[in-house]
Write a protein that binds this DNA or RNA. Structure first.
Lengths: 273, 273
DNA sequence: TTGCTCCTCACGTCACGTGAGGTGGC
DNA sequence: TTGCTCCTCACGTCACGTGAGGTGGC
């Protein structure tokens, strides 16, 4: 007995929304004039409408709301699920706020934003493990394993990486990993293994390697602020680097000078995305 | 020098997403083969891509990200705005969680969900103010003002309401408001006024008036839990009620028996939506 | 008759994901 | 040659809001 406009201002729901709810079968007028198509509503329908609105306000999807008002679904279960979803959203939201906090802080120091979480895939690699002193040159180790992989024609066109294992006393246990298309013979310190898939927080560094330590500290700060837990050794991925031409390294990853080096720090974390 | 699939697994960004970023002009391949349409990327592009991803992860819109990477916009300002938006989202999210908490609690008591926040419009009314004792019958007061409005042919087809003003000692200061199309002569306790537009928390009650007190308490609990502040006197709106036919009340709001009465409790609150 | 309200399409939103149907490169 | 990858449309998502163009009722 009320036209759509009257019922709209009575209920605070726009006519468009009322028509939409009618169209999807969620909430129909008390009567529709078949001649004109005019919709007529009664104030007695308000309890039903408000129940729908209350659920929609909680962010329950309209399809689910329909299931509830039809009486088939269990309200308690739907609300519990919705609560879990909202709690997950809250966690993500807090993380974003923390990340913005760090970014604003860094931004004022002139540093650009650039830390990202993502998944990395598993990949087969040849691996060379060694204990080194801080400051040691790692180039001979890279050359050793790259030459071995080259000699067995197994180089996969992916970037090499350094995995920083534990620190034993003053010495560092490190591992150089080189992507391969198939296993290579295991001789000396060289073995084959699978580099696991995992979620990582990733920061990209451009330029020479002297800046890397600062970036590592930055990544640690970021993890602490966003509350993400590290779960494995840091991986340093060489995306643009230089090496002896005789090693026949995959061309896409070679750069001319220090200034154009690109290095990615990947800190494995508990799964996020 | 990397095909889209290789660059995709290197960066963790899906090929679809890379093509999309290319299409909207946000991030282009280093080179596109005009003959085949194949896209080719370089690892040297990763810093740029990660900057984009980091901003997108914060929920910054891609149009805005484009403005930032182009260098035109100010990162600090964008991040500050984004923080404000996220803080608003957090407030809304906490409110929803609180509302779910109440709903689950009530649900287990067998009560359905149904509290909603919305805006109500301003409307001209005739108003009758009186001080009453709790338990007094208000019907004579309704009849008095409805008869006056009827006599001056000014009744608007909207529901009447009771505004519950302060409690002075044991007595209640109440106001009966009747929607009008134009002012009526002011005699005795009857005046004309505008009922203000405001945001309200609204609960709908179905059935006789004995259940109303419980609903009022429920509404108060809900407000406390969700952290919304009341800012004015409660309005009790009579959506389905009964009255003497001689009053010529607007038909859509009349109901037969107590069981089909519908009453809305509107508690004005600080603006939300 | 003039406004005002109502009606039904059709399109846009946001950042992609999901096929469909077809081609290029080893 | 066979797979595998790449390509370009076209459509779906979610809950409506925003017009466009036209009609009904006082």
């Amino acid at each position: 007995v009320l036209k759509i406009g009257e019922f709209s201002s009575l209920s605070g729901v726009s006519p468009k929304r009322l028509r939409y709810y009618d169209a999807i079968g969620l909430f129909h007028p008390a009567w529709t004039d078949p001649a004109t198509g005019y919709r007529f509503y009664s104030p007695a329908q308000l309890p039903e409408l408000y129940r729908i609105l209350a659920l929609a306000d909680l962010g329950v999807g309209l399809a689910e709301v329909a299931g509830l008002v039809a009486g088939g679904d269990d309200l308690t279960m739907v609300l519990r699920r919705r609560r879990r979803e909202l709690e997950a959203e809250r966690t993500a939201l807090e993380r974003r706020l923390a990340a913005i906090h760090v970014a604003l802080d860094r931004d004022e120091h002139g540093d650009p934003v650039g830390i990202v979480t993502r998944r990395v895939e598993a990949q087969p690699v040849a691996s060379l493990t060694a204990a080194v002193d801080p400051g040691d040159h790692l180039e001979p180790l890279f050359d050793e394993i790259e030459a071995h992989v080259r000699d067995h024609d197994a180089r996969a066109p992916r970037p090499p990486a350094l995995v920083v294992h534990d620190r034993t006393g003053r010495r560092l246990s490190i591992e150089i990993v080189v992507p391969v298309t198939r296993p290579v013979p295991e001789i000396g310190r060289i073995t084959n293994r699978m580099l696991d898939a995992c979620a990582v927080a990733s920061l990209i560094h451009r330029g020479g390697y002297d800046g890397l330590d600062r970036r590592r500290r930055r990544l640690r700060t970021w993890l602490r602020t966003t509350g993400l837990q590290p779960v494995g050794p840091l991986r340093i991925v060489y995306l643009q680097f230089s090496g002896d031409a005789a090693l026949r390294l995959p061309a896409p990853f070679l750069a001319g000078s220090d200034a154009s080096f690109v290095t990615e720090l990947q800190q494995p974390i508990e799964a996020v995305p």
